[in-house]
């Protein structure tokens, strides 16, 4: 088993080393083209600098000011809004909700997406039909997803009615209305919409793995489990990386589904930062507090996701 690992990573390693050398060669030969590459990227850099980092900076600046009515007030008040925010019960619930939601959503997307892709990769009759059906929800907007699942997750009807018909009447969850676990139900609705797309990404990744590699593994006597554990899953790391970024993004920005499911929910049980920010800003005209919530979303991305992205990217390239 250990041999397999060495062989595979050895192969990948030998494929990777020429990249390093080519990079150096190109730098020497084509430094003019290297400048050209930068120039081609420059408009995007400027656009991102203004529309993304400029706006982040603007938002952060507002969060330190005293704008709390419809009259803009840019008096600097330091961390006043931030102190208020961290002591706010709704905000504390939001952080808990995002943690649970992220675990549930990312987990479901990766597990369901990978499983279905693997199954569909077994020369299935009617693969096209299954694939179309699986990815269909991705075409449906978040609001519609939320509204539909709000019906499906009614305790007295919807899915519970099906459970009852199947003789499982004892199983009657309250879904998104549950004050403790409601947020997990939200992640089910959201994963319904997104997991099909993840399946498609994994399937494309699987199809990109050369048949020779699988054959070689089979000759080495590797079983199905070993094949996946030591060859396929590591080779799919770049796909997993992309999936993680996409689902992580969704976990931080989740808004539509929560709003349509009746967010913030009893006791803010299914609230999200984006919904909180939107209501705080435009529902209560607390612009500075809303900006602080928006900044928190960005910091979450920067402090939690970026280090992970970087390590993951390094691993992908090794």
């Amino acid at each position: 088993m250990a041999n397999n690992t060495v062989t595979v990573s050895g192969e990948r390693g030998s494929a990777a080393s020429p990249i390093q050398s080519t990079r150096k060669r190109w730098w020497r030969w084509l430094s003019g083209d290297m400048i050209l590459a930068f120039l081609v990227l420059l408009p995007s850099i400027i656009a991102v600098a203004i529309f993304i980092y400029g706006f982040i900076g603007w938002t952060f600046y507002i969060s330190m000011s005293d704008w709390k009515s419809s009259i803009p007030d840019f008096t600097f008040v330091g961390l006043k809004n931030w102190t208020r925010l961290v002591n706010d019960r709704r905000f504390q619930m939001d952080m808990r909700n995002h943690l649970f939601y992220a675990i549930g959503f990312i987990g479901q997307c990766i597990v369901i997406g990978f499983t279905l892709a693997t199954l569909l990769d077994q020369k299935i009759k009617g693969e096209g039909l299954f694939r179309t059906l699986f990815i269909f929800p991705f075409a449906v907007s978040g609001i519609v997803t939320g509204v539909t699942w709000q019906w499906l997750m009614q305790p007295s009807t919807g899915i519970n009615l099906i459970f009852a018909k199947l003789g499982m009447g004892w199983f009657r969850p309250t879904w998104h209305a549950n004050i403790e676990y409601g947020i997990w139900a939200v992640s089910i609705a959201a994963a319904w919409q997104f997991s099909g797309y993840v399946m498609a990404l994994y399937l494309a990744g699987l199809r990109g793995i050369p048949a020779e590699l699988r054959e070689a593994a089979a000759i080495d006597g590797a079983g199905t489990w070993a094949l996946y554990r030591y060859i396929i899953i590591p080779l799919l790391m770049p796909v997993t990386f992309t999936v993680f970024v996409l689902t992580g993004m969704n976990s931080i920005r989740i808004f539509d589904v929560v709003a349509a499911l009746g967010g913030p929910g009893p006791g803010n049980s299914i609230d999200s930062l984006a919904l909180n920010m939107f209501q705080t800003t435009f529902g209560a005209y607390r612009f500075s507090l809303g900006a602080a919530i928006g900044s928190v979303m960005m910091f979450l991305a920067i402090f939690l996701v970026v280090p992970y992205l970087m390590s993951m990217q390094r691993e992908t390239e090794r």
């Binding site: 706006f55 982040i56 939107f278 979303m297 991305a301």
Partner: peptide, 11 residues
């Protein structure tokens, strides 16, 4: 990539 996490509601 950080830009992907930008919350539109706030900007």
């Amino acid at each position: 990539l950080v830009g992907m996490f930008l919350p539109y509601q706030g900007i």
